[in-house]
Simulated assay, not measured.
Amino acid sequence: MAPITTLAELSSYLASAGIGYTSIQPLSGGTANFVWRLQTSDGRTLIVKHAEPYIASIPSIPFPVDRMDFEARALEQIPRLLGRVETEVPVRVVRLVRYDAGAKVLVMEDGGEKTLKESYTDPTLPIPQLGATLSKWLAKLHASTATTDATVGDNQTAKFIYRHSYNGLADALERFGFDRTIGERVNENYGSLLQTDDECICHGDFWPGNVLLRRADNAPPTLALVDWEMTRRGTGATDVGQFAAEAWLLDRFRGQRGLASAFLRSYVDAAKPSKEFLRRVVVHFGTHIAFWPTSVVWGSEEETREVVGIGKGVLEGALEGEWALDEAGLGIGEWSL
């Protein structure tokens, strides 16, 4: 597989593939792949995504290229499996234009220039409504793919990467002065389940940074879901927990606009999940906020310690069966066991 990492290499590939364009713009924001926006002669924009056998931003770290195969499969299959989802704001999976499995080049429609994370502080956006809309869409994804014949393949890379926060949880807790055995118990009891969970198709990286917004003048936004390379069969609780955790961090550090609580309440209303499912949501939520802010900066060292401590409290409650998400200030105290 010839490398496609520079504008010259991409131009050569596009010419050989017969893909015409008028301009190319490299895109930043992701870490794993090489991504560009193409302007076509008919006025459209397309996104080109290419995988090398390493993380694009850290070439010393290997990363299997089969991630592109799973994403292409998801872009083809998910819209068909879901059908039409009635939500207040239109939500869609970006359309696959073409996929070159040999070169690991995926061409898809352009879902928008800004993510929900980037747009969170825009005062004209109805943030709680967008959170509720996304949770209803996610609940439909999980319900529509609950049968075992709905599959995107066995994505072992996704399962391995998804356990990263569980594997690192004990060290993160210890670094900020908390009992590392809590992290060890969570990893043993719940991280170990990620390999065998088989309830539905999960997006695998469901967070506000993978939701693109498009707005025409002052019209309501449309939402597009991107970055499906970590899709897998698993438990939908991890999708819910990841989005809720990242939304909670946005609320805490970017303006308290109510994204997390609106998302969680709407998912529960739509999916009517079991108590054990909710426990898994809470475990994943607590793991995420206790681990990721120790490597992705949200605030000061002291603010990070506070967040890790909140995550620790959430996890202690989940382990003891006496949890409530009020521990994280979400105002959803009725979710207790």
Rank of each mutant, 00 (worst) to 15 (best):
S274K: 09
G286Y: 03
V240C: 05
K272V: 01
L249R: 13
K275V: 09
R265W: 10
A260T: 13
G286H: 06
K312W: 12
G309W: 02
A270T: 12
R279I: 01
G286E: 05
G311C: 10
I289A: 01
K312R: 09
T294I: 11
S300E: 07
L319D: 10
F243G: 13
G258D: 14
F291N: 12
R254W: 14
S274R: 00
A290M: 07
Q242D: 10
L315I: 05
A262T: 11
V314L: 15
I310Y: 00
T304G: 02
V281H: 05
A237W: 04
G258E: 08
E246I: 12
V297R: 13
P293S: 05
A262G: 11
V296C: 10
H284W: 04
L278Q: 10
I310F: 02
G236K: 02
L264D: 05
L278S: 10
L250I: 00
A245H: 06
P273I: 11
W292D: 01
R257D: 00
L319V: 00
R280F: 06
F291C: 11
S274Y: 03
R305N: 05
G311M: 01
R252G: 01
D269K: 15
R279G: 04
I310G: 00
A262V: 09
G258R: 11
Y267S: 11
R280W: 00
H288M: 15
A290C: 12
L250T: 01
G286V: 08
T294E: 02
A244H: 03
L278A: 00
V307R: 05
E306W: 04
A244M: 14
V297D: 06
A290R: 03
L278F: 07
D251F: 14
K312E: 13
W298Q: 02
V297S: 12
A271W: 04
S266C: 07
R265C: 08
G309D: 04
V296S: 13
G236L: 10
G299I: 14
T238K: 09
P273F: 03
T304N: 09
E316R: 08
F277D: 03
A260E: 14
A247R: 02
V314K: 05
R257G: 01
W292K: 06
P273K: 06
A244T: 13
S266F: 02
A247L: 07
E303K: 13
E301P: 05
